[in-house]
């Protein structure tokens, strides 16, 4: 990257980072009504969102597309393996649509209803949505999906479906696992400094998902230690392979928490229930990304961190706005966005 591009990207990242909401700001939004939330979002970010009660997905699409437009600008100065890594990372957004499609077809939901839940990703979309919606059964859709760029992600999901039927968590986890394996693979081609810096943020994400999946597979689904371990993704910052093998052998959530590395043990010591642990780990991994965005000099790592944080913010706002549109109680919204933990 040229010196000019570096300065440009650095400035862009600094400006965009200032527009991110803090966790406390987002939590405060829960107490506000929808109009005031959108007014504050407009004031803070400059983005104007349209509320259309006849099309609640419109605002979700707008939120995603604003984020994707920013990513497009941020990625532009990169080239080669760095660019490929970031472009792959952005696919995370399309996985939401992929999961909606798979769940919808497996549950025999009407195509129009599935379409309503999809987010319009415009030029970032790789999935042939129209053809996928026109499929008549899940297997036809899977065959079509296997011909797309998501073929490698879909094949394990098919196996999981054939083995365990239509279990939402297992399907989602299988798709996410494949995504992280591929993302980790792309990270291998970065130069050593980039790989190390990106690894800190990515490692936090991998730890979070591995721990959550391990707990769920072992104690919610009762899978064997070996199988639970096998279904985990690449190892992250603190939960290395040997450690995960050791954790997989344990017989209760409490034992696992006690056996965790000190940092995670302290985080989860007083947290009851896997769902709340998931939230705590999510915010911990986001705090790592925030630290990298604000403190690290490495531009690739900062860009990746921004993508991670912005994705979480978009997801939070989508859940919050949807809850407000549907007239949910604040407590229920708090639970949905994981603000209780």
């Amino acid at each position: 990257m040229s010196g000019f591009s570096s300065v440009y990207l650095d400035t862009r990242l600094t400006v965009l980072a200032r527009r991110l909401f803090s966790f406390e700001q987002l939590i405060d939004f829960i107490e506000l009504d929808l109009e005031r939330i959108l007014a504050q979002v407009r004031e803070h970010t400059g983005y104007d969102y349209t509320v259309d009660n006849s099309n609640p997905r419109l605002i979700e699409g707008q939120l995603t597309n604003h984020a994707l437009d920013e990513f497009r600008i941020l990625i532009r100065p990169f080239s080669g393996s760095e660019r490929r890594f970031l472009q792959f990372a952005i696919r995370w957004f399309e996985l939401v649509n992929l999961k909606v499609l798979i769940r919808g077809k497996f549950n025999a939901i009407d195509s129009d209803l599935i379409e309503e839940q999809l987010i319009d990703l415009r030029r970032f979309a790789d999935l042939p949505i129209k053809q996928l919606l026109e499929t008549d059964d899940p297997y036809e859709m899977l065959r079509l999906l296997e011909t797309t760029v998501y073929g490698g992600i879909v094949r394990p999901a098919r196996r999981m479906y054939e083995e365990h039927g239509n279990d939402l968590f297992l399907l989602d986890a299988t798709i996410d696992r494949s995504f992280f394996i591929d993302l980790h693979y792309h990270a291998r081609f970065l130069d050593s400094e980039d790989a190390e810096n990106v690894g800190r943020v990515l490692g936090g994400l991998l730890d979070r998902f591995n721990l959550l999946w391990l707990l769920r597979y072992r104690f919610s689904y009762g899978l064997s230690p070996a199988r639970s371990f096998y279904l985990l993704t690449k190892t992250g910052n603190r939960l290395h392979s040997a450690q995960l093998l050791r954790l997989a052998r344990l017989d209760s959530v409490e034992e696992v928490v006690v056996a965790l590395p000190r940092e995670y043990r302290e985080l989860l010591a007083n947290v009851a229930g896997i769902s709340d642990m998931e939230t705590v780990m999510e915010y911990y991994s986001l705090s790592l990304a925030a630290r990298a965005l604000h403190r690290l000099p490495n531009l690739l790592s900062r860009t990746f961190s921004y993508i991670v944080l912005r994705e979480a913010e978009v997801r939070f706002l989508q859940a919050l706005i949807k809850g407000k549109q549907l007239g949910f109680e604040n407590d229920l919204i708090r639970q949905a966005v994981g603000a209780r933990a």
């Binding site: 394996i181 064997s224 230690p225 070996a226 199988r227 371990f229 096998y230 985990l232 093998l245 052998r249």
Partner: peptide, 14 residues
């Protein structure tokens, strides 16, 4: 081939 290492580790538990 991409499943081998993870499988080898998992098999060690059995």
């Amino acid at each position: 081939a991409e499943n081998f290492n993870q499988l080898r580790s998992a098999l060690s538990l059995t």
